[in-house]
Computed example of a mutant assay.
Amino acid sequence: MSATPVRRILAVVPLLALLTLSACTANPTLHARRITTAQPTPSAPLPRPSTSPSATAEPAAGSLEWYLSQVPTFPEAPPPQPMQLPATGAAPFWHRLPTDQKVAFITIDDGGLARPPGLIDFIWEARIPVTMFLNSPAAAEHTDYFRQIEAVGGIVENHTITHNSLAGRSYDYQKQEICGAADKLEGLFGKRPTLFRPPFGEHDSTTLKAAHDCGAKAVFHWTETVHEGKVRYQTPEKVVQPGDILLMHFRPALMDDLLAALKAIHRAGLTPALLTEYVR
């Protein structure tokens, strides 16, 4: 079922009152929080519209309304079960979150490439939970943009300063890359990152130690990548599994990537959720 944008609902409130229709209702599920308009009862039919039939035509492909019309409806995400984090001095490294709960996680990396203009409205109106792993220079350059995504439910996490490979580098170098980015992101967004993704997924034991020392609870890889609207599976199972992490980037086709990820998660019988809610 497609979402009904909030701005449209506000625009038709006077008409709905005139026609004595019932008030709008909201479904409490993750994606069904999108507001829908109650249907008129048989005893109070709506008059035939005097406007052109084109008013009810299918939304144009590529429009925000079209993307919203393609979003599946998901059941509510299950209440997070506490993760057992290791008590050692190193953060765990996970390709997928070790859980059997029926959730999967949408993550977006970098932040310095492209920011589609309709993305924020899409995330908000479709209620897409996104975790952003940002380089601190990109976050500093486009802070307002990422704050808007934060305001509609996104989370900012750590992806280093320079986006260089960390594997094989000294502890001091890796700690500066991770802690320096964490410090900057905390200053920009008012919250210190608690999750970390190394550039290219490349890491070693020093990375996990430095990430832990910089406040990261866990270090993440991925199980699927999404590019230009196509999901590419990195594991033998060609279906999204509970706890899977889907990786995409701030590229021009990001809205297509988000839609493809949502459809793949829905086909698997899972619900998208925020990583931070399941790693505490």
Rank of each mutant, 00 (worst) to 15 (best):
L113R: 10
R280Q: 14
F133K: 04
D110K: 09
C179Y: 02
P45E: 00
V13Y: 08
A87R: 12
P129G: 01
N27I: 05
A126F: 08
A91T: 05
G187I: 00
L30D: 14
A218E: 01
V13R: 12
W124L: 07
Q174V: 02
Q70W: 10
S43E: 13
R115H: 15
T194Y: 03
L68T: 02
K102L: 13
I178E: 02
H221F: 11
P80W: 06
V239C: 09
Y171Q: 07
H159C: 13
R232F: 11
A151G: 14
D144A: 15
A211F: 12
R48H: 08
E277T: 10
T225H: 01
F146E: 05
N164E: 12
I120M: 13
V226I: 15
T99D: 02
D244V: 06
Q81W: 04
L208W: 05
P137E: 00
P137D: 02
V6Y: 14
L134D: 07
P252W: 04
G62E: 03
S170Y: 08
D121K: 11
H142K: 02
D204H: 03
K102G: 11
L166Q: 03
L246V: 13
F250P: 00
H159Q: 14
T131L: 07
T88E: 07
D121T: 11
D100H: 12
L258C: 14
L254Y: 03
P42C: 05
Y278N: 06
G168Y: 05
P193M: 11
L166S: 03
L208P: 02
T20A: 15
A26E: 08
C24D: 08
Y173Q: 10
D144Y: 00
I108Q: 04
R232S: 13
